[in-house]
Design a protein around this nucleic acid. Structure first.
Lengths: 267, 267
DNA sequence: ACAAAAGTGTTGGTACTACACCCATGG
DNA sequence: CCATGGGTGTAGTACCAACACTTTTGT
């Protein structure tokens, strides 16, 4: 399913009309765990790119770009991620395709003020954006690319973003919160080996609330999603925690139509 | 969020490259309850359109068409639905955007045979398809448009469809099964008023298994998603069942970024 | 009276929450 | 020894599946 596009079958008597001056862009909500200053617990951060032209010139926006004719959507999202961070994704999933007719600034103003939406003119370019979300393993976050026009922000301290990107980020976080409860994406925020406490910190950062360590342990154990490596971390000033690995034999729930493919990459 | 597209913010030093010869199509998996011959219980059916040109000429495919430059994706899906059935949707939701580079027939053959995928040539058109799924209220199914090149099929007796449409339908059904358990889409397959038995039949058709009437009743009652109208249906040869209505005050879970908009339409 | 489906009660199991408590290590 | 987090035990609760049972109609 993931490897083929498809063409629509039109109902015969309808004629086809303009084969669209619509252009296609791909953006990515890139999430990773980072530490705020003076904070013991990690939280979710994402990189944003400063816009160099109108509209919204000077404001921060999700990294993205037009779809090249030889790229799949997923490849385009991965390339966007690479440009913004220099890294490969730990996980990559399609969020939603946004494609309304109205130019963003006008529509947004109309939405906020409650004023009627302006009539669509022929004077603006029509863009459909396919948005992905991705995670980066904590072990690689330190290697992220540094650039004057790229900056990481904690998701709960975002500035006002260009277009409707604030709402897109909110939706990405909402989807992530739902998904973390019945799939194993949390692992994609960590390296190959990790302690239960680290895994719990991922859940806590995503859900935004503390979890009972005792119950968390049992829940994860019951899911059989992780395997005890037998080794421990020493040098802590308390009992040394065990190190675990993903159980790659375990299947994901709802990885989307691309599920099987992603399963392989994850392992 | 639903009312504005957005443009990507490129990382500055990258240049833009070709502004894409990619064209955009919208297809819709349209689902409704119908009765098979000699079957007491309704099952899920969907309308397909016969292809009149290559590739896959003569085979059945999901209804769809190119995105017009003045249509939103959702409008395009609704229009597709109207063309195929003559009806308005009871519910409409984006499924997924499919957009790999390779032309469908080649990629599909490669996928099935395990042979290496052919190199993408410049000789074919690149299409990205945004697929929606929709439901039609049972009360309106009888009014569906009749056309030589449109035919309804039970979802468990589909022929071999064009492109990867079989897999798309499977994915749509999978999403529907998940969603029916934590949202109220089941209602969109019925008219304004319905009995509990009818609602249960919707669940059973979607989930593909019988449900305990006693437990079903309590579950639905606990969710507070329906309201007793006080009236009953008479003329049955058993105890007359109550008629219920949707509780429109109740919020949906996970209606996607377009949630609030859909909420209003549903009521 | 009987068939059929509406609707109620009851019981046992599972899974989650809260929290008490013990364990192992570094300082 | 103490502080700190790792890790286990357990009681209370909420929910759910299974199924026995009662109710209300048409024939």
């Amino acid at each position: 399913m993931n490897s083929s596009p498809h063409y629509a079958a039109e109902v015969p008597e309808e004629h086809e009309a303009d084969h669209s001056s619509v252009s296609l862009a791909v953006s990515t909500v890139i999430l990773a765990l980072r530490h705020k200053k003076n904070s013991a617990r990690p939280s979710l951060w994402l990189p944003l790119v400063r816009r160099l032209r109108e509209p919204y010139k000077g404001q921060w926006a999700l990294p993205g770009g037009p779809l090249q004719s030889q790229q799949s959507l997923e490849q385009a999202a991965g390339y966007t991620l690479k440009r913004a961070t220099g890294l490969e994704p730990g996980y990559l999933e399609q969020l939603y395709a946004f494609g309304d007719v109205l130019r963003a600034p006008e529509a947004r103003a109309a939405r906020i003020n409650g004023t009627p939406v302006p009539a669509p003119g022929a004077d603006h370019e029509r863009v459909v954006s396919v948005v992905y979300w991705a995670s980066i393993p904590a072990t690689e976050v330190s290697q992220t690319r540094v650039h004057e026009n790229i900056r990481w922000f904690p998701v709960d301290e975002l500035p006002e973003l260009a277009f409707d990107h604030n709402e897109i980020v909110e939706y990405a976080l909402y989807r992530l919160q739902n998904k973390v409860e019945y799939s194993r994406i949390a692992h994609s925020f960590l390296g190959d080996e990790f302690t239960l406490a680290q895994l719990r910190e991922v859940y806590e950062a995503i859900l935004g609330r503390p979890l009972d360590p005792a119950n968390f342990r049992r829940q994860i154990a019951a899911s059989k999603s992780i395997i005890d490596t037998g080794r421990r971390i020493e040098g802590t000033r308390h009992r040394p925690p065990r190190l675990y690995r993903y159980n790659t034999a375990q299947a994901y729930a709802d990885a989307g139509p691309l599920g099987m493919y992603r399963e392989r990459r994850e392992s």
